[in-house]
Every structure is written in structure tokens, then in C-alpha cells.
Design a protein around this nucleic acid. Structure first.
Lengths: 253, 253
DNA sequence: CGCCAGGTTGACACTTTTCAAGCCGCGTGG
DNA sequence: CCACGCGGCTTGAAAAGTGTCAACCTGGCG
């Protein structure tokens, strides 16, 4: 929708337009983390043809919602998302937080309809990967099939971890687990492992961890009082990583 | 390894031996529920070549354990399983209960190593599906690829539901959800939806639902006192399905 | 400048866990 | 055939952890 796109009849189309170039997997700096991980150069080039130009979402926008028809999975190019499921009576459970390089939408494959909402927690860019194209390409590129299976399996394993968290840990252990997980994923993306700004509210953290926002707040305060972290609203600085790990591992329930 | 197989040089091999026949997907009565669901006759025949003869497990045996190398997924032919993850300090969380026609082992795809244990809760038979064969066949048979994706996606969606359960429901709602889910799956397999025997202990139910066995027991007693169910140890008879549904839906937390 | 969402903190209520005792059913062995 | 032991289940009473409610603070934005 830029003015450029509506400019009068070019003699022949440019081989690559800038927007296209910027979305190609082959020169995306997330290619080692994202769907193309482990593919060869040639294979990634084939992926490029399939990944549609990026879509931008503003904070609060839904990438998809429960009940919407499923036809594509999405790779997060930049930004931050939450996924959530909602009960009949309106309460909801945040099922995960997703950041750059992670894949969303796989819940939709089972019934051709999405079974959760994915909502941007900050302005974000995503790459759309039409599922039927992915299926076709997975046949031509076995290592893509393999890697897509891994991505789905990883999601299953991740959810097992959350079930563990919700099932056997107590409030402070859950929060420690949450912070350590965030720290690890941020550092895997080249950000500081010890200092970051949360993108979600206390209520969203609470929903994810199965506790009330007040309990989240108290746990943060406790950690600060114990010198484990420094908190100022969304700002977090981890002062004692080992101490956090100890709380996390110390399931002496 | 039967004597038959070692018998002296048959003129030509039988087209089908009995054991083989019995494991083939094409004449398994679970084919509408299990991995072959939605495949054509011809396609199922191709699956037959891949599914290895069944393995028997006794109650208490592990189908696989955390840390074991992954190389196959498994279809439950008969019996009942639990899957569980274990913390460093030995506590564990039951992440699911599986019955005939359901697929186990997909957790292993992500890191080529299993990340949970699958344990038989009663004597069971399972079909082994080597993962590399599955990958190969999925390329030749696109509808198999599609269906395998569905199976994995369904597992993701199921886990979302469990997270909801653990995150927002209270004890009695969880138990109602558990009973309704069991009832629904049993009836989908032709068993009674209202009367069944539990295959797991109170402790296992509690681990799955994130509560202590005493709390499970109390909730059962409460349901019985309210005329919703009849309980006698493992025996359950649902007397008021609508009432159970009401408790389940009534997340007035 | 004032409003409002989001966050913190305190006091109290409630659910679930913990600890403890006892029961039941079943397989083993005298 | 019956006593015994043991795992699994139930129930009660007290303790602990979270949730609830309410007040207040803070920072950002119209």
C-alpha cells in the first residue's frame, strides 16, 4: 500500500523489491533459530519463495483468534506475543509467551481452526507461511519436514514443562522458573541474560503461572528483598542467578 | 522368532503370516482413530509395511524413559498408559493418560531423546512405528504427512487444555473435567460413557490434576454425596452427567 | 493537570496441603 | 482356611499457601 507500489507501469518488475528482500529467510538473522534452522543454503532459498511478506501488528492486535480458519503458521520476525485459551465463562489462561524466531499457529493444524488466540504484546512483525505450501515443500525438502516436526515436538515438550510448573511448583518456584526461562531465551537471541524489560503485565504473568497478579507482585518483592533481582515495574535485573536457580530447583514442597 | 519362522526352507513364503496379519493397520479396528485415520485403503496398505509387529508390555513396564534415544513413535493397540516428567529432586508430574489408538513418543522428535517416561498402567500391546520410515512414507503419502501433523497438533491442543485446567480451575472442577474427558474418550472407543474402571491410582490422578491424593479422594466423596457419581475404589458410575458438566463449566472462581 | 491502567502492600478468608489414624481388599504364607 | 501385611483409599483436624478485597502509589498520556 505504499505509494511506490502504485507508481505508473514499470517496464519490467524488479527482480527483487526491497520489502521482499527484507523478508527472505536467506538473509534473515534469525535463520539459525527459526524454521530454516539446519537447512542448507539451497534449501533456504526454496523456503524464501514460500514465506509471504511480513505483516505488521501493533501492540494489542491479534495475529489470530480462537475459531478462525487455520491456513498458515507464522514466524515471529520481531516483537513479542502471548497465546491464550479462554473458557466458556470468560476466564483465560495464557499458554505461552513467544519471541523472535519462534513459530505460532500450530494449534490450528488439528482441526483446521485455531484453538487459541495469539496477541501481540508489542508492535511486531511476522512472516506468514501458508500451510499448504509448507506441506508441499516438506515433501520436496525432507530436512524441512524433519525440522518442522522438531518445532512441533519442541512445543509439546515446552508444554510438558509448563504442566510441571503448574502442577508441582509453588509460587516462588514458578516465578523463578519463568525468569530463568526468559533470561535464557533472551540471551540466545543476543540480548542480556541478566537485564531486560518485561513485555507483559503482572496479570499476564500470573495467568501464565497459574497465580493471581498480587501473588506475582509479592513474589517479585520477595526476590528483591532477598537480593536476587532488582525490579522496577517492567524492568528486571538479575543480581543472583545462582540463587534463582536454587529456588527453581528446590522443589522441597 | 516363532518356531514357524525357523521351520525348514518353505518352498515359497506365505503371503501373510498370522502374527503379521494381526498387527497390520489395514485390519485393525482402531484404524479410524489411530494414525491411519483418513487414509485410503491403498495408503493404509503402505503403512502396514512400516508398522512393526506389536510389543507387549506388562503393567508397570516403561515403553520408554527420559533420556533414552528416540527412534520410533508408538501406537497403543490395547491397554492404558501414563506419561510423566520428573524433576531433578524426584517429584513427578503426570502429563497425560493414553488409551487405545493414541500415539506416544512424539516428545522425542525435538532432541532425538525422550523427554518423558511412558509407563503401562495395565498389560498393553503397542505398535512400533520407526520414525525414519514414517518420514520416508510421509513424503510418498502426503495425506499421511498431513495426518501426522494433525496428531502432533492435537497433542499441543490437548496440553493447552491441561494448562487451563491446572491454571484456572479448582479441585472439583479439575476432577469433573477429568471424568468427563475419560468418559468421552471411552465412549468414542465403544465402551460405556457412564460406567468404567479407573486404571490409575488416586495419586496418579492427583499428579495429573495438580493436587494431592487426599484432595482427589475428598472430591470423589463429595461428588458421591451430591449424587453425581457412584464410586467404589476404581469403579466409577456417572449418575448425573449434566451435573458434572455444570461443575466443569462453572468456573466461578 | 488530572485521570487511569498497572503495580504494590496489608489484612483476612478460603482452599488445599499436611499429618495422622484407620479401613478395606487382596495376595501370601503358615 | 485364616492371619497377616501392605498398598491404596478415606476421613478428620490443624497448618500453610494463595486468593480476595481494599487502599494506596506511580508513571504515562490525553
Amino acid at each position: 500500500m505504499k505509494n511506490d507500489a502504485a507508481s505508473p507501469t514499470p517496464q519490467k518488475p524488479l527482480p527483487l523489491d526491497l520489502a521482499r528482500l527484507k523478508t527472505a529467510c536467506s538473509n534473515c538473522n534469525l535463520r539459525e533459530i527459526c524454521l530454516p534452522a539446519g537447512l542448507s543454503h539451497d534449501e533456504i532459498d526454496q523456503l524464501d519463495d514460500m514465506v509471504y511478506t511480513r505483516k505488521r501488528l501493533r501492540r494489542g492486535d491479534a495475529l489470530y483468534r480462537t475459531g478462525e480458519r487455520f491456513d498458515a503458521i507464522y514466524a515471529i520476525r520481531s516483537g513479542f506475543f502471548k497465546t491464550r485459551v479462554t473458557t466458556t465463562d470468560g476466564r483465560d489462561q495464557v499458554t505461552g509467551f513467544s519471541m523472535a524466531g519462534e513459530i505460532l499457529g500450530m494449534d490450528g493444524i488439528s482441526h483446521d481452526v485455531h484453538s487459541c488466540d495469539a496477541v501481540a504484546l508489542e508492535d511486531s512483525e511476522i512472516c506468514t507461511i501458508p500451510y499448504n505450501h509448507l506441506q508441499t515443500l516438506a515433501i520436496a525438502v525432507p530436512s524441512l519436514q524433519r525440522h518442522f516436526h522438531k518445532v512441533m515436538s519442541r512445543e509439546i515438550v515446552r508444554e510438558n514443562g509448563v504442566m510441571m510448573l503448574l502442577g508441582v511448583m509453588r509460587a516462588e518456584e514458578r516465578l523463578a522458573a519463568f525468569l530463568l526461562n526468559l533470561s535464557q531465551r533472551l540471551s540466545a537471541r543476543g540480548y542480556s541474560a541478566l537485564e531486560f524489560n518485561l513485555r507483559m503485565t503482572r496479570e499476564e504473568i500470573g495467568s501464565y503461572l497459574g497465580m493471581k497478579l498480587e501473588t506475582v507482585s509479592r513474589a517479585f518483592s520477595k526476590f528483591q528483598a532477598d537480593g536476587l533481582i532488582e525490579v522496577d515495574q517492567k524492568y528486571i535485573c538479575i543480581r543472583n542467578l545462582a540463587g534463582l536457580r536454587e529456588i527453581y530447583a528446590h522443589h522441597t514442597y
